[in-house]
Lab assay of single mutants.
Amino acid sequence: SEIVVAMYDFQATEAHDLRLERGQEYIILEKNDLHWWRARDKYGSEGYIPSNYVTGKK
């Protein structure tokens, strides 16, 4: 599975969105859409994140 790191904070506005915290790692579950990826955080929460807010883990 692909691990990404959040470059920016993202506040979830929709129920299906996942909040991003800058510097935290997330697991990508689905990339069915170019701009919104389904991800899981370290607490096990899942939701959609803006793909341009994250970068591949170095």
Rank of each mutant, 00 (worst) to 15 (best):
M7T: 08
R40M: 10
W37E: 01
K58I: 15
H16G: 15
E14W: 11
E25M: 10
E30A: 09
H35Y: 13
G56N: 13
V54P: 03
R19E: 10
L18N: 02
R19D: 14
P50E: 04
D33C: 12
K58N: 14
R19C: 14
K31Y: 05
N32Y: 11
K58V: 15
G47H: 03
D17M: 15
V54Y: 02
E21D: 08
E46T: 08
A6T: 01
Y8T: 05
Y8K: 11
R38S: 03
R38P: 02
Y53T: 04
D33R: 07
G44Q: 04
L34D: 15
N32H: 12
R40N: 05
Q11Y: 13
W36Q: 07
R22S: 10
I49Y: 00
V54K: 02
K42S: 08
N52Y: 09
A6V: 03
N52M: 10
A12P: 15
E25G: 04
K31N: 07
R38Q: 05
Q11R: 11
D9W: 04
K31G: 03
G44R: 02
Y8Q: 08
D41C: 03
E30Y: 07
Y26G: 00
E30I: 08
K58L: 15
V4C: 10
I49G: 01
N32T: 14
D41S: 03
W37Y: 05
V5E: 05
R38H: 08
I28K: 01
K42D: 03
A6M: 00
H16N: 13
T13W: 10
H35V: 12
D17Q: 15
Q24P: 00
Y8V: 07
E2D: 11
F10C: 08
V4H: 04
Y53G: 06
Y53I: 06
L18K: 00
Q24I: 05
Y48W: 12
I3F: 08
R19K: 13
G47F: 05
N32I: 13
L18M: 06
M7V: 10
K57H: 10
K42M: 12
D41A: 01
H35K: 10
L29W: 03
G47W: 03
Y53M: 12
L34E: 14
G56V: 14
L29G: 02
Y48I: 09
T55N: 07
E46P: 01
M7E: 06
D33S: 11
I3A: 05
W37D: 00
V4G: 04
N32F: 11
D41N: 07
